[in-house]
Design a binder for these strands. Structure first.
Lengths: 239, 239
DNA sequence: CAGTGGTCTAGACCACGGG
DNA sequence: CCGTGGTCTAGACCACTGT
């Protein structure tokens, strides 16, 4: 990443210290004034970094006391946030393989057109991939991408990481997503591509993904076998 | 809420304008300088309010352009965040009823003791409640509360809202939670208290809930019938 | 009391977008 | 070019915690 930003660099450094256990749970990190002196910066800049740490569950700030390190070992971040399968499996180091089952430019059916807010005859990339982990196909990812933003797409890109291609090759900035998790009955497609055993239902994570300028470019369904699904999140109360 | 805070008051005011549609999706809100003038405050204070709006999915800030209002109609009411069932059902206005199936002070079994980090002979409040919505029992909430923090608990409190009691009567500050969503096989208890039809599995939302000072005071399992479960979230990429 | 984090200020410089 | 948001600063006052 770019280290133009002091507060991001400080955030990363402290986050790494916590992940490595050098700053241990229940300890307090140095005070904001001490950190400001150490990093030769202003207190507000330190506070930006600490607020990021608090948002992401690394620390808890307590008025009058200090900032306490939280136990982050349990979290190992799965489907939370906005992360591609490639990035996920890398973080976990599990042996995984991706099979591209379908890839093509299609005229979207009414459901997909609605999900992507398409009006005219815009075409859409349809990508269907199965994810094989430890020898079993347990996730089916169905992606629909607006061709206005993604002009071309190859099997190689889909086997690697579509997000990497979009961000690094096309220079687009993926910014946010509206995510929905529900359970549905398995479809013929699920039975065809996944090792479903006797399961009759499947967890579906639906994502509407937006770029920096608020344009909607992707609708995704990530379909997980019931017994292999896990979602972890850190939530703060209030505002 | 207390309106001691300028930036929180400004956040609330703008969030309300967006929820009411007075600031409509795809429009830009006034610039930071304009808002600073209007509210007679500094730009940094305005930025705090706008950053909160961005975090919570109300706006998207675009450098060089302005802050664009996002469509928030789809989002309303998540199981996201840290919200009690009472608060949730109020926001949705569905007819709902709570049945207290169990309530008592118990010696925790090893699993619960471990979830709550209990060492000695600390006792724990066990509360089991079923949630009836539109005539069907579809959610089973199992709560375990450390009696060190919650000395007493009554059926009336459990029928209303435990969180309301803890925050308003006891004056404790519920601060954050680690949340996990998985799917499990139904237990005898699920069959006993819920209208499960032919479902064999159930969505379980497990929460470890912490107070302001990072003390763990509650472990909760919220068990949802597959077809009635829905989780919505707003996620930003990166950091 | 001294030290902590929480809020707020008035100003500065930068990178970006659009006319 | 000007206006936008992004970063950073140095200082102030407050509320809260501990001793």
């Amino acid at each position: 990443m770019k280290t133009n930003n002091k507060y991001l660099a400080i955030y990363q450094e402290l986050a790494d210290l916590i992940k490595q256990g050098i700053l241990a749970p229940d300890e307090t990190i140095p005070s904001e004034n001490e950190l400001a002196a150490k990093y030769e910066t202003s207190r507000e800049t330190i506070r930006k970094a600490l607020n990021l740490l608090a948002q992401n569950g690394f620390i808890q700030k307590v008025k009058g006391k200090g900032s306490i390190v939280l136990d982050v070992t349990k979290m190992s971040f799965p489907v939370s946030g906005l992360v591609s399968f490639k990035e996920l499996s890398q973080n976990l180091g599990r042996s995984s393989r991706t099979n591209v089952e379908k890839l093509g430019l299609i005229k979207p059916d009414p459901f997909i057109a609605q999900q992507l807010n398409l009006s005219g005859g815009d075409e859409v990339w349809e990508v269907v991939r199965s994810r094989n982990i430890d020898g079993e196909s347990i996730i089916l990812d169905k992606d629909y991408l607006n061709s206005r933003f993604i002009p071309s797409l190859t099997k190689e890109i889909c086997e690697d990481s579509i997000y990497r291609y979009i961000e690094e090759e096309l220079g687009l900035k993926i910014s946010f997503a509206k995510k929905e998790i529900v359970v549905e009955e398995c479809t013929e497609e699920d039975y065809a591509y996944l090792d479903l055993h006797s399961f009759t239902h499947i967890v579906v994570v639906k994502n509407h993904v937006y770029l920096d300028d608020t344009s909607l470019f992707q609708y995704t369904e990530s379909r997980h076998r019931l017994d292999k699904f896990r979602f972890v999140d850190f939530a703060r109360r209030g505002h």
